[in-house]
Amino acid sequence: MALRETAPPEVGGYGIEDRLGSGGMAWAISPAPPRSGRRLAIKVVHGQYADDDGFRARFTREVAATRQANGAFTAPVADADAPRP
C-alpha cells in the first residue's frame, strides 16, 4: 500500500519506508532500517485513540503480553510507546 500524503517522514525516531496496511485502531508502516539494522513494522495509533487514557492502558497491556510471547514465528517488540503513539 502506498504511503498517504499525510504520513509523517518518521515515527518515534524511525524513518518511514512504506505502508503495510491499516485497521480500525491503527495503521502499520514499515520503516527503513533503524538503529539495530533490522527492518520493523510499526503500529501507529489513529489520532482519536492516541489521547484516550483507557486505550493507552489497554495498549500498554497488549505490549506487555506481546513481550511475553516468543518463538520462531513471533516478532519481538523492539520499542513501545511514544509521546503520541
Rank of each mutant, 00 (worst) to 15 (best):
M1V: 13
A2N: 13
R4T: 08
T6C: 02
T6H: 08
P8N: 06
P9M: 11
E10L: 05
E10F: 07
E10R: 10
E10G: 06
V11K: 04
V11A: 06
G12H: 01
Y14V: 11
Y14H: 08
Y14K: 06
Y14A: 05
G15P: 00
I16F: 12
I16R: 04
E17V: 07
D18Q: 15
R19L: 15
R19P: 14
L20N: 09
L20Y: 12
G21A: 04
S22W: 09
S22I: 03
G23D: 09
G23R: 10
G24C: 13
G24V: 10
M25Y: 09
A26T: 00
W27V: 04
W27S: 03
W27L: 07
A28E: 14
A28L: 15
I29Q: 05
S30I: 03
S30H: 04
P31W: 07
A32Y: 00
P34Y: 05
P34C: 08
P34S: 09
P34E: 07
P34I: 05
S36V: 02
G37I: 10
G37D: 11
R39L: 03
R39A: 05
L40A: 11
I42V: 13
I42D: 02
K43A: 08
K43M: 05
K43L: 05
K43P: 03
K43H: 10
V44T: 03
V45Y: 06
V45P: 06
V45A: 08
H46F: 03
G47D: 02
Q48C: 00
Q48L: 01
Q48V: 01
Y49I: 03
Y49Q: 01
A50K: 13
A50Y: 09
D51C: 04
D52V: 02
D53A: 13
D53Y: 06
G54F: 08
G54H: 11
G54I: 05
F55C: 01
F55Y: 07
R56P: 01
R56W: 02
A57T: 06
R58E: 05
F59G: 07
F59D: 09
T60G: 11
E62T: 12
E62P: 07
E62F: 11
V63W: 00
V63C: 00
A64M: 01
A64L: 03
A64C: 00
A65W: 02
T66C: 06
T66Y: 01
R67T: 03
R67I: 05
Q68H: 13
Q68K: 15
A69I: 08
N70G: 14
N70H: 13
A72I: 15
F73N: 14
F73A: 14
A75H: 14
A75G: 14
A75V: 15
A75T: 14
P76A: 01
P76I: 00
P76Q: 02
V77I: 09
A78E: 14
A78N: 10
A78W: 08
D79Y: 11
D79W: 08
A80Q: 07
A80H: 12
A80S: 15
A80C: 07
D81I: 04
A82F: 10
A82T: 12
A82L: 14
P83N: 07
P83V: 04
R84F: 10
